[in-house]
């Protein structure tokens, strides 16, 4: 599966336009801060409405302005890893991880809680409150929550930006494993050239 995206999204008084040809692996959205990279992810996830274009993942159409298709966010199956984590503060790590899993259609689930915690190395955190996680731990839980929701693709918004160098490497390896082992298409937002070069098979530069 891969993305097929051609979008124009309003952002303030400008319009962000982006075109992503189908390609396997990680597609990096690269560009300086404030250029509208997150806006593109939001549009793919169905959180903001594009003015024109289409979003397809594999053979599933999430949005098509001409055909009048605009699936609501909960039907899109976009595992969104937000820059600010957005873990649910009133739920334990376990309940955060299972939130999307419980709602996912059975045939879209590709891992269970045990596999996800092992994959991400967060087994020891399950009964903790998310308020007491370090930045790296929180980011792993956020990735796990997205993976467990049975996504068709992952959207990652600068997942390393809030981490120190040591933790970055751990998360980078996790992302590489998602790319290589799970074969999920990933749309990856970053403003760091080295990160993009290491991960991405396709780079789309916004300017």
């Amino acid at each position: 599966m891969s993305f097929d995206i051609d979008l124009s999204v309003p952002r303030g008084r400008r319009t962000v336009s982006v075109r992503i040809a189908p390609a396997a692996g990680i597609t990096a959205l690269f560009g300086p801060s404030g250029i509208g990279k997150t806006t593109v992810l939001d549009a793919v996830a169905g959180l903001v409405r594009p003015t024109s274009g289409h979003v397809r993942i594999g053979d599933v159409t999430l949005f098509d302005a001409d055909a009048g298709i605009a699936l609501p966010p909960e039907k899109r199956g976009c595992g969104y890893v937000f820059q600010d984590g957005r873990l649910f503060p009133h739920k334990s790590v376990r309940d955060n991880l299972l939130y999307g899993w419980n709602l996912a259609p059975e045939d879209r689930r590709f891992m269970d809680l045990g596999e996800a915690t092992e994959f991400l190395g967060i087994g020891a955190l399950l009964d903790r409150s998310v308020r007491h996680l370090s930045g790296g731990e929180a980011q792993r839980v956020a990735i796990g929550r997205a993976l467990l929701s049975g996504p068709r693709a992952l959207l990652m918004d600068e997942p390393l930006s809030s981490l120190d160098a040591d933790r970055r490497d751990g998360i980078l390896r996790v992302i590489e494993r998602i790319r290589d082992d799970l074969a999920l298409p990933i749309l990856y937002v970053s403003h760091d050239r080295a990160e993009v070069d290491r991960l991405a098979s396709q780079v789309v530069e916004l300017s």
């Binding site: 909960e74 009133h90 939130y99």
Partner: peptide
């Protein structure tokens, strides 16, 4: 309450009503 938490719930498969009941109301 940070409304972005409800947005996160939506991307995880929750309808607006479910996001309200499981995120907004408990918080």
């Amino acid at each position: 309450i940070d409304t972005r938490l409800e947005t996160a719930a939506r991307t995880l498969g929750a309808s607006p009503v479910r996001a309200f009941a499981t995120i907004t109301l408990p918080l």
